[in-house]
């Protein structure tokens, strides 16, 4: 099994790769869209702003390549932080810029609905809990409610987002994990969330493994 880490100039690639190294999973950081077909699963990391990330994805020719591998060939994709935002239709961080549109929702500022007396500190930086909405999902195997993961973001998908897998509360609920068929997303940084995050990455690579063997059976 080989995992491709998509490098479109916006990621904390080193930390994602060192987490996969820890799990003894072979991974390659790739900056060429044509290479994506060589991998069994893909990780779309990302830190930075939505608009710039989409510009980079488009300019690098990744949009078509991801469409082919993830939507048509059904390769498992794990999108992290800003990477998860890119799955949406758009973001209020960069008005007028279209996302990949695979998830029917739009990214909004975190704690958008907060009307309390004190203004909310943004970005949300630090450890917060997740509440599972679909506890039996493979991505949440060996994960309990209330486990802590590391967040660092100003924007998020709203709680109303379809395909939500887990939610988190920061002056109001938002979607902290999502799953739609072979597409998975996390608002937090699993590669920086110690045991809990490493277990999630392992769950993802297990899903990649099983989808790979299912693919082989189909061929035969």
């Amino acid at each position: 099994m080989r995992i491709g880490i998509v490098n479109y100039g916006m990621g904390n690639l080193g930390s994602v790769q060192s987490a996969l190294n820890f799990l003894n999973v072979e991974s390659v950081v790739t900056g060429t869209p044509e290479e994506l077909r060589e991998f069994d699963g893909l990780i779309l990391p990302g830190v930075g702003s939505f608009g710039k990330a989409m510009d980079n994805l488009r300019a690098g020719g990744f949009v078509e390549a991801l469409q082919l591998e993830v939507i048509e060939k059904k390769k498992p994709l794990f999108a992290i932080c800003l990477g998860m935002h890119l799955l949406a239709r758009g973001s209020s961080e960069s008005d007028g810029i279209e996302g990949l549109g695979w998830i029917n929702s739009c990214v909004v500022p975190v704690a958008d609905g907060w009307r309390g007396e004190h203004p909310v500190r943004r970005p949300q930086v630090g450890w917060n809990t997740i509440s599972r909405l679909v506890p039996e999902h493979g991505m949440l195997s060996r994960i309990e409610d209330g486990e802590m993961v590391y967040f660092d973001h100003s924007f998020a998908l709203p709680a109303s987002c379809p395909d939500a897998l887990a939610q988190t509360n920061y002056f109001g609920s938002f979607t902290s994990m999502l799953a739609k068929d072979n597409i998975f997303g996390a608002q937090f940084h699993p590669e920086k969330s110690q045991r809990t995050g490493l277990v999630m990455l392992r769950n993802f690579t297990n899903i990649v493994l099983s989808s790979k063997s299912a693919g082989v059976e189909q061929c035969c």
Binding site: G14, S15, S18, A19, N21, F22, Y150, D152, H189, E191, K192, S193, Q194, G197, L198
Partner: peptide, 12 residues
């Protein structure tokens, strides 16, 4: 930085 980061599964 690379050596230190490889051991840190927390934010660095």
């Amino acid at each position: 930085i690379r050596r230190v980061a490889a051991k840190a599964f927390v934010p660095l």
